[in-house]
Simulated assay, not measured.
Amino acid sequence: MNKVLPILAIIIIGISLLIYNIYDPLLIDSESFRRNDSNIQYTRHARCRMSCRQISEAEVRDILTNGKINKLKSDPHDKPCPTFALEGYTKQDGQHVRIVFAQCESILRVITCIDLDREFTCNCK
């Protein structure tokens, strides 16, 4: 019995660490993401996806303001900058989108834009 307890403790600790690593992104709260569009930048990839999927800067800003954080698609520990995936429907045409933002200190970078309902053939690299 004395030999089993240390092994059991190690197994329990290992399972706990595994569960923590899987569910850690779920610990994102709305306070950890600043929804400030005063210093927003768009990557070349985001611009290409926006053009291909007909998503405007105004729609991106609206999703930034009103979208819901998808905790499973966000990574507050991402390097070099935490990433947050916000989802919602655009006001102009009701497109169901996910916009991925990287919060890099005072700069909010748009990484990509995804239409969740329609497949598009985009030639973005």
Rank of each mutant, 00 (worst) to 15 (best):
K71W: 04
T83W: 14
T121W: 12
T121A: 10
V100M: 07
C48H: 04
L116R: 15
E105A: 14
G67A: 06
K68W: 04
Q103K: 14
A58H: 10
V60E: 01
D115W: 08
D117L: 12
V110I: 05
S56F: 05
T112G: 05
T121V: 12
I111N: 05
R98Q: 14
T90V: 00
E57T: 12
R49C: 09
I114A: 02
C113W: 00
K91T: 10
F120S: 03
D78V: 04
C104M: 06
T90G: 00
E105Y: 13
C81M: 03
S51F: 13
V97S: 02
K73H: 13
F120G: 06
F84P: 00
C81V: 02
G67N: 04
S56H: 10
L64D: 07
I111T: 07
V97M: 07
T90M: 00
V100L: 12
I55Q: 01
R49G: 02
I111V: 15
L64H: 11
L108D: 01
K71D: 05
R47T: 06
C104Q: 05
H96F: 15
N70Y: 02
R118I: 11
V110F: 02
R109Q: 08
E59C: 05
E87D: 07
I55N: 02
R47V: 02
K73Q: 11
E59M: 07
V100W: 05
K68P: 02
I107E: 07
R53L: 06
I63G: 08
E59S: 11
V97W: 03
G67Q: 03
V60Q: 03
Q92V: 10
S51H: 12
F84Y: 09
C52M: 01
T112S: 14
L64E: 10
T65C: 03
S56P: 07
C104S: 11
H96A: 10
Q95A: 09
R53P: 06
P80K: 04
Q95I: 10
E119H: 12
R61N: 13
S74E: 10
V60A: 08
K73E: 14
N66E: 14
F120T: 08
V100H: 04
L86F: 12
S74T: 09
L108V: 04
L108Y: 00
V60P: 03
N66V: 14
R118Y: 13
L72R: 15
T112P: 08
C81T: 00
K71T: 08
E119S: 10
R49W: 00
D93M: 09
I107Y: 09
C104P: 05
I114W: 00
D117C: 04
K68G: 11
R109W: 03
Q95K: 15
R49I: 01
G67R: 03
T112N: 11
T83G: 05
T121Y: 14
C104H: 07
N70A: 12
R118M: 10
Y89G: 01
D93I: 06
H96T: 04
S56K: 08
R49Q: 11
E57R: 15
H96N: 13
E105Q: 15
V60S: 02
R61A: 13
